[in-house]
Design a protein around this nucleic acid. Structure first.
Lengths: 382, 382
DNA sequence: CTTTGTTAATTTAATAAATTAACAAAGAAA
DNA sequence: TTTCTTTGTTAATTTATTAAATTAACAAAG
């Protein structure tokens, strides 16, 4: 419930203008005024300020339509930078983005001891590297960090991380002690979804696949957190009456049916293998139409599709975006998945549904974390 | 994406002030200014206008806290009226509410032929009755109408109604031809949810139980419609691998397991009854702990609970509000249901969950439809 | 090369609606 | 009684908008 004030009135127009310049790469002041239905004078004034802040620049003349040629405006990519970090299960990934969200630098550091100290120190050195790299480190407008598990983004705390035994960690304070930038902490999947919001998507469910299966819900270009920041626990929907026992203690969870490990485990058992096998090999066999691979993958897809159908029936999203492991097999996995969802969902809810893969791959978490900072900046929440 | 303008700035403050007066029944101008962090002058000016519009009135002096006694402001219940209508499967229900959402008049007309003409004519006569009853029919600020099935609320059209074979009906136009009020058409369950929004709830799932099982989703005090207005099709989640075939053609749908008809049918079969039996009699037998009633009701609850758990895991709502049939049995059905949901959901998502019954009962749809109009009025969308 | 008509961007003046400041009204406390 | 508080109003000021006028820059047509 925003209040009406001069500050907010102007903020709203600043936000609208900046967002429009971001979306239409190359737009004139006159077009902005027409599209936003504000006067040209207002646009002139606000754009002047944005240029002074180095967030916007005049790029080139546009084509004349019978009069003075328009000056096209763009974001000034060198006007600001953001750092995005993902504390993954086996690696820390980090990116440095410019103000147009182009990746300037990306790094991956594989972790070994899985201690908080290790993650902290690697993070500090990555941030140092990026700061040193920029001529002017004051241009960094924020740091975003994603981590799996339950996160309280308002407090900036990681509450519970299934794969680390750290307990509750106040990550925001750890970073805020050393750095004077705005800091955003959130669940990794939500960060990935924030990345898709940056790509101009407004209404979708992002599903990250792999060892865990998690979702993030986006309505009206905003993340839906739920009452305890626990929304999106997609992996623990009960999909079938029995099935293997999930690590959460219950039976029939999606995660126990369609996660990477559960697929590998089932395949291993089915073929009574002695040695280890990885997912990619199973997929190769699947494409060769090997019997066991067909069974295991098709079952995993069937249950996954059923779970997505439930989501589609309930939420009727514009799109479902798949990230992580399955996204690497667009042709072989995502296409058949789409058919399953089509068949299992109600006609009205699935009518215009799009199922696509994520914009980024391995660096989806890190880039998304950075774009979360950008999203907030563009909402002028910084 | 609202634009910044003087009009919008003022609108925002009008909205905030009106809403505050609605929520705190009896509040002074000074308190409003403090709470909303706007100046007293602004409050004075806007309140003056609201009083002139007869939407607000000065009620009585409050207690002094060491100075001049405050003048307490309230909504002027006689300043405006709304009409709410539900086109139910066996009856039309209608209410006339005053500006404080008190029910002034309520009516139920049982329908017989289930033709559009019948519903239209009854509706016209009900509206006529309410208009005649008011001294000044200009004070009616809108009409809301709820109907089951798929509705396009923006167009004001009923797209598909499982229980009537009317095809697509442009209900808004039917009413707009005769009446010059703002008209709101929506799905019945969403209207019920709008009623709960009026009761100051902001984040919940409303589930209507009975012949069908439908849900409406409310986040941040706003209804979530989905991409094709199809969000909330809760009744067709696949809850179990087999089970009876649903009228939608699929197996294992919640509606085929826990709806009124499916419960009665199963009980009927189980006891091999010759004559008809109604739900209330089954519930009497359930409380007598009759074996068949226990089986049938407990199974229905089990599946219903499982479906709610899936919703809770995914959406982590603040509350689940049950309306319709099950809500009539708070002690015997809702309490055990809560236990099931507690057990089946993830700890974090269910931690603070409240399961409660709807504020209104038979007139939930009609009252909600009226309150949808009020909600929109308070958002100054009229 | 000139004229005419358009479109783009800026400047200036008018206006809407907020805030601040000053004060009257009304009661509490000393 | 006198002084202090709190409420609510009015007048003056400030902010940021829009409308209108102006300048800049070009296309089209002759």
């Amino acid at each position: 419930m925003e209040k009406g004030s001069f500050k907010n009135m102007k903020k709203q127009n600043q936000k609208n203008i900046l967002t429009l310049i971001k979306n239409e790469k190359g737009i004139s002041r006159a077009q902005i005024a027409d599209q936003l239905e504000v006067s040209r004078a207002t646009v002139t004034n606000i754009v002047r300020e944005l240029i002074k802040l180095k967030l916007v620049r005049e790029s080139k003349m546009g084509m004349s339509r019978g009069g003075r040629r328009p000056m096209l405006l763009k974001l000034n990519s060198e006007g600001a930078y953001v750092i995005g970090i993902e504390w993954g299960i086996e690696a820390i990934r980090a990116v440095l983005l410019d103000f147009e969200a182009e990746i300037i630098e990306e790094d991956q550091i594989n972790t070994e001891k899985y201690t908080l100290a290790e993650y902290k120190n690697h993070t500090f050195s990555l941030i140092k590297k990026y700061k040193d790299q920029l001529k002017d480190s004051n241009k960094i407008i924020g740091i975003g960090l994603g981590i799996h598990g339950l996160v309280d983004p308002e407090a900036g705390k990681s509450i519970f991380t299934p794969h680390f035994d750290w307990g509750e960690v106040d990550i925001k304070s750890i970073l805020a002690e050393k750095y004077d930038y705005p800091i955003f902490i959130d669940n990794d999947v939500r960060m990935m979804a924030a990345g898709e919001i940056w790509q101009d998507r407004e209404d979708f469910i992002f599903i990250n696949t792999g060892s865990g299966i998690g979702a993030a819900l986006v309505f009206k270009a905003e993340l839906h957190y739920g009452n305890n920041y626990a929304a999106g626990e997609f992996g623990h929907m009960k999909i079938t009456d029995d099935g293997p026992i999930c690590h959460c203690g219950k039976k029939g969870c999606l995660e126990a049916l369609s996660s990477k490990e559960s697929i590998i485990e089932r395949y291993h058992k089915l073929k009574d293998l002695k040695s280890e096998i990885n997912f990619d090999q199973i997929m190769i066999n699947f494409q060769k139409e090997e019997n066991e691979a067909l069974i295991v993958i098709n079952d995993a897809l069937k249950y996954f599709g059923r779970a997505i159908s439930d989501l589609v029936n309930i939420l009727n999203p514009e799109a479902v975006i798949i990230g992580g492991l399955f996204a690497e097999y667009e042709e072989t996995l995502i296409k058949p998945l789409y058919q399953i969802v089509k068949e299992e969902s109600l006609a009205q809810a699935v009518k215009d549904l799009k199922i696509s893969t994520a914009y980024y791959q391995e660096f989806a978490g890190a880039a998304g974390a950075a774009e979360k900072v950008l999203n907030n900046f563009f909402e002028l929440k910084i």
